[in-house]
């Protein structure tokens, strides 16, 4: 029991960073722009947030700087793919290289920074006393965890129930039709790519300022940016499914750690406890499961004949034939 409480508690925290990154990518892809640079934007957000917090002593200011850094990087991608109509895959990869490299350059010496303030944690009175759910969901959580809770229904409502969300989906599904209705396709795409960057920056800042405070060069984000992209496909571009996936993968990270400390599982001797080298196979789990999750997502897409926004990955050129 205690084992699962620990795993899920950590899962909610880890999952919050993954949640922000996934939601950001989801928004950009809904608008028809694939941004593979999430890992780079997260690392930039992580390093600038941590650095700014270390320099000013204010974690909130740090977080803001991290968000802006992520947003700024994403604008580069937006310019290259929306205005210059370059290939979105290559540009996204370039963004990952650039973000990672720039973060390493800026983070030189940051690893040894001491006394960097972190974001506050809160407990929700009454709710935190509920057995099992209380400690997992409401007890002594980073403020960003609660922001994450609010973000899920808010995004769902925005995408499916508001005019803005309708425009967002239209731009990603059929930009020419959206354009003919007077929706500014280019401006909206810029805007949502920027939102995605800000959220990725927030995810990075959440890691360095709250979840696992500190800067550990490129290992800070441990591939979360890529998992986020996989999760968007698994979630079929639905924010609620994306959130479930994010928390699940967050839990998995802790599960692989805790499994090494348990002598037996359900009465069976735990091989991971007795052979330390098998830990590497445990550590493969998140990555292997990302592939499994992708397979599930792709099968669902084939079966239900829905899935990716129809114009995902395609540049929009007004008045050009053959363009969606």
């Amino acid at each position: 029991m205690n084992f699962w409480v620990n795993v899920l508690t950590a899962g909610i925290s880890n999952g919050t960073a993954l949640l922000f990154a996934t939601m950001g990518e989801l928004l950009a892809e809904r608008a028809g722009v694939l941004n593979l640079g999430v890992e780079g934007m997260m690392l930039m957000g992580a390093v600038t947030a941590y650095g700014a917090a270390a320099a000013t002593g204010d974690p909130w200011l740090g977080l803001l700087v991290g968000m802006l850094a992520g947003g700024f990087l994403s604008l580069l991608h937006a310019f290259v793919v929306i205005s210059l109509r370059a290939d979105q895959v290559v540009s996204g990869l370039a963004l990952t290289f650039l973000g990672t490299g720039l973060a390493l350059v800026l983070g030189e010496g940051l690893a040894s920074a001491r006394g960097v303030p972190t974001l506050p944690t809160y407990s929700i009175p009454i709710l935190d006393a509920i057995p099992f759910l209380g400690p997992v969901l409401f007890d002594n959580k980073s403020v960003l965890v609660f922001v994450g809770y609010l973000l899920i229904p808010a995004l769902w409502f925005y995408i499916y129930r508001t005019r803005g969300g309708l425009h967002l989906r239209a731009v990603g599904e059929y930009p020419a039709a959206a354009d003919s209705l007077g929706i500014d396709v280019y401006a909206l795409r810029y805007f949502y790519v920027f939102c995605g960057g800000v959220l990725a920056g927030l995810a990075g800042g959440a890691i360095t300022l709250s979840i696992t405070p500190g800067w550990f060069s490129e290992f800070t984000t441990s591939g979360y940016g890529w998992i986020a992209i996989g999760l968007v496909i698994f979630a079929q571009w639905n924010p609620v499914r994306a959130a479930i996936g994010a928390y699940l993968f967050g839990s998995l990270r802790r599960f692989t750690l805790d499994m090494q400390g348990v002598q037996s599982v359900l009465g069976i001797a735990n091989p991971f406890f007795y052979d330390r080298n098998l830990q590497f196979f445990l550590e493969m789990l998140p990555y292997a499961l990302t592939i499994v999750v992708l397979i599930i997502g792709s099968r669902a897409a084939i079966r239900k004949r829905l899935g990716a926004p129809a114009a995902l990955g395609l540049p929009y050129v007004r008045g050009e034939r053959g363009m969606l």
């Binding site: 780079g40 580069l76 290259v80 210059l84 109509r85 370059a86 290939d87 290559v90 540009s91 990869l93 370039a94 963004l95 990952t96 290289f97 650039l98 973000g99 990672t100 490299g101 720039l102 973060a103 390493l104 350059v105 983070g107 030189e108």
Partner: peptide, 21 residues
């Protein structure tokens, strides 16, 4: 600093695909 090579690669890839326009 150590990230320099990777950063240069990223910038290079960006200028490259931008120039293709």
């Amino acid at each position: 600093p150590s990230g320099l090579a990777r950063m240069l690669q990223g910038i290079l890839l960006f200028t490259l695909i931008s120039s293709e326009v």
